[in-house]
Design a binder for these strands. Sequence first.
DNA 1: TAATATAACTTGAATATCAAACAATAAGAT
DNA 2: ATCTTATTGTTTGATATTCAAGTTATATTA
Lengths: 137, 137
Amino acid sequence: MSEELTNELLFFFNGFSSWENSIVRASDLTISEAHALEVLGEHEKMNMKSLAQKLGVTTGTTTVTVDRLEKKNFAKRESTQEDRRVNLIVLTEKGKKAFEEHHNYHLQLTEQMVSVLSEDEIRQFHDTLKKINMETF
Amino acid sequence: MSEELTNELLFFFNGFSSWENSIVRASDLTISEAHALEVLGEHEKMNMKSLAQKLGVTTGTTTVTVDRLEKKNFAKRESTQEDRRVNLIVLTEKGKKAFEEHHNYHLQLTEQMVSVLSEDEIRQFHDTLKKINMETF
DNA sequence: TAATATAACTTGAATATCAAACAATAAGAT
DNA sequence: ATCTTATTGTTTGATATTCAAGTTATATTA
């Protein structure tokens, strides 16, 4: 029952991961830089702690990643008056452009995935994902 | 149009990755060992090259991973008459058990995901995934 | 003010990964 | 048959990824 669905799901995740890795390797970003960029692109300003949480890694790891993003000029740290311990990370123009480009690849993958589906199937698939995301993750 | 669906997909993949990582960290396997185990558990015997391909890494990387699996007694290399360059990797009893345990977690996650869906939705979801997997990955 | 908590960084160590070079073996060509 | 080329897997050297634990600076609470 669930066995077959599980295998399809694993194949799906696996396919996505491989695709993602090959996209990233073809860019001038490393994997963790790309992951950080994906998150930062969706948020105007973000402190280290919430970025770390979103990425599912420790703040120490995030420090290293943001160091590199900063060195490569994709992002920069901004301090804030309210709490002087906090660093807000913002994307530079270069960072925003890199995010857009990366995001476009995601859009293209989505288009390719749904190209085999009918309008109805797409809608249904979207609804199902929403439900699962709300409930499970 | 595709924008929203893309975001749900990214959230979905992200949720799965985080879940997978936390499961693995709670076990006595590393991430790459677990990935190799996932593949090896589905194949009786597998040579290094095809294992590397399935994992989406180089054979050099796979050598290291299999070395550790072997050292930890989860798998072993077997040589073959037909082609003496080839190493066939097989799981030990301990490896098979670890695979089963890991796979059970996947089954549980699937159950949890579909618990919000109707019978019809589950069938539809399954069909859609099959189509996408066939076409895209 | 003193004690405690929090945000981010640093350090040291283990893993993960790649590209390139290498060794052993197989397959194909002349 | 032997010479050349291709393939399988390992090794090497380098970089990247990550964590846990400890540190520093700043906030919050008692």
